[in-house]
Amino acid sequence: MSTPEPVIVVEDLEVAYGDKVVLQGINFEVRAGEVFVILGGSGSGKTTLLRNLVGLMRPKSGRILIKGRDFTAMSPDERVEMRRKMGMCFQGSALLGSLSVADNVALPLREHTKLEESTIDIMTRIKLELVGLGGVEDYLPSELSGGMKKRAGVARAMAMDPEIIFYDEPSAGLDPIVAAGLDQLIRTMQSTFNLTSIVVTHEMESVKIIADTVCVLHKGKVVGIGTLDDLERSEHPYVRQFFARLPDDVSDADPAYARSLTGID
C-alpha cells in the first residue's frame, strides 16, 4: 500500500431532516484498502452519514466523491452502476425473509449478471464459505442465529466482488465472542481483497481491533479524526469522554436523589 488514493472524499456535507440539521460541515477522506471507522454515540448522526454515503439519502449540500465521481449528482442508471462496486451490511442483516440464504447471496448476481445458474451456485457457495457459513445454503434467514445472519449479510455484500464495503453496527446485539468473530471477519475481508471498509459503530472494543482510521462524530459534527493513537492524545472533551467511557454530567443522576424518588430512604 504505497500512498493509497482516496476512494471516498466527503466535502462539506450537510444533511437535514426537514429543518432539523443532523450533519454539518463533514469533511474526510477514506483511502483505498483501509478500515475507516465512524465512531459516535446514539444520535450522533453516524447512521445518517452512512445512509448518505451509500445513497439511501440525499444530502442538503456538499459532495460525496466515490472514486473521483460525484455520487450525489449521478443519474439513477449511473448510480446503479456505481452500486455494483459497493456492498453494505445492515445492522439487522436485512436478508430477504422469503428467500433462502443462498438465494439471498445470489440475488445481486441474478439481477446484475447473465451468468449461468450453475456458475451462480458455485459463486454463492464460495462467498458463504468465505464468511464461514458453509452448509447453511438452504436455511431461511429466520432459522439462523444473529451472528450467522450478519455473516450471511457480509456474504451478500461481497457477492458482486465490491471494492468498497459498508458495515452498519456490525457487532450490535451480539455476544462478545460472536462480535469478536465479526471483527476478525471484517479484518480478513479487508486484508484478503484489499477492500476499503467503512464501519459505523459505537463499540470501542472492536474499534481497537479493526480501525486504521477513526472518525469521531458528535452532534452531527466531526470532533476528531485520525489513527487510534492520534485520538487517544486528543484534547477534545467529547473524544476523551468517549474513550474513557465516562457518563454525561447529569445532575439528576445523583444516587441520593434517585433513592429519594423510589422511597428506599
Binding site: 445513497g55 439511501l56 452500486r83 445492515f90 425473509g97
Partner: peptide, 17 residues
C-alpha cells in the same frame, strides 16, 4: 415488514429497484 427490516434499503443498495 420488508421496510421495517431494512430489506427495501438493502435492495436499493444492491442496485435492485
Amino acid at each position: 415488514t420488508m421496510k421495517v427490516n431494512e430489506e427495501l434499503d438493502a435492495l436499493q443498495v444492491m442496485g435492485v429497484n
